[in-house]
C-alpha cells in the first residue's frame, strides 16, 4: 500500500478551482519532488493535505496508510504523521519555541500512548537537533518565529520536522530564501530523516535543492494538474528549458 495516496484531488478556494485532479502515490521510503511555476497550486495542495480551513475539496481522496485523511481534523492528521513545513511560517508572539516544541512533541507521544517527555530528555533532544542544524540552542527561548530571519524560520521548520519524525513530510519551498550553506544544512536534515518507512513531498521552485536532496521522482505541476512525471532527468531538463512547454500544454 502506498504511504500517501492522492487520488484525483480537486479543490477550490473562494469558489475558484485551483486543484484540478491531482493523483500521486508516495511509497514508503520515497522522496518526490514537485516543481512548477508560481501560482499553480503547490501550496494549495500542501494546505489541503494538512487540513487548512478555507479550501473546499470538491472531488477526490487522500489516504495515509489507508486512512482517510480528508475525514480527519488538521491536528489529527499531524498526529497521524503528516507534517507540513510551511512556505510562510507564522510568527506567534509570546509562545516560546521551547514551550511549543514540547507541547507538539507531547501531543504526538500521547497519541502513541507514551508518557510526556521528561524535562531533561527534552532539553537534550533539542540540544542535539539544533546542533545538527547549525542553530544556536538559545533560539528555543525566543518566541516562535518572531523576528526570525527568513532562513531561521525555514531552519526552525526543519527542526520541528526532525523532532516530530513524521511519516510523510511535505516541504513547501523550504529552500526559498536560503543561502547555499543553509540549503545544505536543511537538505542534510531531510536526508538524515530518510528512512524506509517515511516519505517526502518536496515542493520547490528551483532545481538547486534537488542537487542536495536525494530524490526518486519529479512531478511538474502546472495550472492545478500534474503535467509531467519522471526521474531526476526531468528536474535537469526543467532547469535547462524552463516551464514554458508545460504551461502551454496546461493552458
Amino acid at each position: 500500500m502506498a504511504l500517501l495516496e492522492i487520488k484525483n484531488l480537486h479543490a477550490s478556494v473562494a469558489g475558484k478551482e485551483i486543484l484540478k485532479g491531482i493523483t500521486l502515490k508516495l511509497q514508503p521510503g520515497e522522496v518526490h519532488a514537485i516543481m512548477g511555476p508560481n501560482g499553480t497550486g503547490k501550496s494549495t495542495l500542501s494546505n489541503v493535505i494538512a487540513g487548512r480551513e478555507g479550501y473546499e475539496v470538491t472531488k477526490g481522496e487522500v489516504y495515509l496508510d489507508g486512512q482517510d485523511v480528508l475525514a480527519m481534523a488538521a491536528d489529527e492528521r499531524a498526529r497521524a504523521g503528516i507534517f507540513l513545513a510551511f512556505q510562510y511560517p507564522v510568527e506567534i508572539p509570546g509562545v516560546t519555541t521551547s514551550a511549543f516544541l514540547k507541547t507538539a512533541l507531547n501531543a504526538k507521544r500521547r497519541a502513541e500512548g507514551k508518557p510526556e517527555i521528561d524535562a531533561m530528555d527534552f532539553l537534550k533532544l533539542v540540544k542535539a537537533k539544533t546542533a545538527a542544524l547549525g542553530m544556536p540552542y538559545d533560539m528555543i527561548k525566543r518566541a516562535l518565529n518572531v523576528g526570525f530571519s527568513g532562513g531561521e524560520k525555514k531552519r526552525a521548520e526543519v527542526l520541528q520536522m526532525t523532532m516530530l519524525e513524521p511519516r510523510v513530510a511535505i516541504l513547501d519551498e523550504t529552500d526559498s530564501g536560503l543561502d547555499i550553506d543553509a540549503l545544505k544544512i536543511v537538505s542534510e536534515g531531510v536526508n538524515s530523516l530518510r528512512s524506509p518507512d517515511r516519505a517526502f513531498l518536496v515542493i520547490t521552485h528551483y532545481q538547486r535543492l534537488l542537487y542536495y536532496i536525494v530524490h526518486d521522482h519529479v512531478h511538474v505541476l502546472a495550472n492545478g494538474r500534474v503535467v509531467a512525471s519522471g526521474g531526476k532527468e526531468l528536474a535537469l531538463e526543467l532547469e535547462a528549458e524552463g516551464y514554458a512547454k508545460y504551461l502551454d500544454a496546461a493552458a
Partner: peptide, 8 residues
C-alpha cells in the same frame, strides 16, 4: 492552524 499542523 500552525499549532494544529503540529498535532496540537
Amino acid at each position: 492552524f500552525y499549532l494544529a499542523a503540529r498535532g496540537i
